[in-house]
Design a protein around this nucleic acid. Structure first.
Lengths: 208, 208
DNA sequence: TTGACTGGATAGTAGTTCTATCCAACTATT
DNA sequence: AATAGTTGGATAGAACTACTATCCAGTCAA
């Protein structure tokens, strides 16, 4: 497959594909002469993955590049890839050295401890949660443990499904894609359904 | 309160505050002389809201401006504000005129119909969900209705809590903030807990 | 042989969110 | 009254991201 065909089939311009190759998101095609290279199905699949991560996961190119590196490193296990993806999802802000923030972060750590969850110290989702605590408090809507209960339950429930769904014992590429899909794409599924359910609840309550 | 004090108390630079005023996110202070204006608590609270929407909701300035307009329009009811916020959350992509996409969108519409949810036709979350369906199918992981069930359950459950939590019968500003908090900030709470629960499930399954 | 296409390189664009500077007018301090 | 600092208001520019456009000589297909 020539680059123009790859372009047609993926719906991306030739320049964009070249850009992704330059940035290390897509491997070069196999050179067949000085001005000819051939691409195969794996390139097309990679492009589809890239677009899914970009458009739906809203991941920056630099984050996708790190994920791709983990994909291509055969030594990275599924849980390692998971960590890379989590880190890529962010947040990418460095929490300020603020007492409010530190307190919130401790609340988060305590919660995770109580739940017995195996989550690394550096997981950015810890900071994300702590940040929401700080913002909620600052806005005068402090969050309580009781508020969190339904969220914990919902999160646990769907996460269990997702990890169970990851296909195992298949070719590595497929397993790895399965993992990425379960984390990045199903997060969007949950978000979308959450918003839709909110709209319904809001309509029932406020839109007589 | 002078702008410099507002700057100190909010942690934002004077320039940034001026920028938000220019963009219509923050009302001007009351002029007390040609080179003096005074700001009050409401400005500080608005700035906190802006930062929460920017940093946690990741909303662009232009979207926040639309939300602010809805906040300041006394005629906008809570459900109207909800719609504005939903639209601000995106996605902001125009779906392509593609048969796969149209089929996915019909699946989404059918699902919402079956659930009996009151959701407008233009709700961007419909497109967001349809987009994930397309991406999942393209990547070779088609989604089934059975896959969706736990998500619907989880989404309904937490959405119910959120809308129930919106404080009513308080000053309009407070009610309105309550609504925004419930939709934008609690979405992040759910996302963060979802990621943490996934990491735990992944650790248990893949990290012996 | 001619004309389109290629890989590879470089430069430029468009959008977003600030950030920096400048100005005359004004206030507070000495 | 002199002066040092701040203000609102305006404009310009920086930094970053994700492309997009152009150019080039080499090469392939008709």
């Amino acid at each position: 497959m020539l680059i123009s065909e790859l372009s047609d089939r993926s719906g991306l311009t030739v320049q964009t594909i070249k850009f992704y190759i330059r940035e290390g998101l897509l491997p070069k095609g196999t050179l067949a002469g000085a001005t000819r290279a051939s691409y195969d199905r794996s390139h097309l699949e990679r492009l589809r993955l890239i677009r899914a991560l970009r458009e739906l996961g809203d991941l920056p190119v630099s984050a996708i590049q790190k994920i791709v590196m983990a994909i291509e490193d055969e030594d990275t296990g599924l849980h390692g890839l998971f960590g890379t993806t989590q880190y890529a999802l962010g947040p990418h802000i460095s929490p300020p050295d603020d007492p409010h923030w530190r307190a919130a972060r401790q609340d988060v750590d305590a919660l995770i401890g109580e739940l017995g969850w195996r989550v690394t110290e550096r997981a950015p989702a810890r900071d994300l949660l702590a940040q929401t605590f700080v913002a909620l408090r600052r806005l005068g809507f402090p969050i309580t443990l009781a508020d969190l209960r339904p969220y914990v339950r919902a999160a646990t429930d769907v996460a269990e499904h997702e990890i169970a769904r990851v296909a195992d014992g298949e070719p590595r590429t497929r397993t790895v894609h399965s993992m990425l899909v379960s984390t990045v794409l199903y997060e969007q599924v949950l978000t979308a359904l959450h918003r839709l359910a909110q709209e319904d609840a809001s309509a029932r309550r406020f839109d007589g």
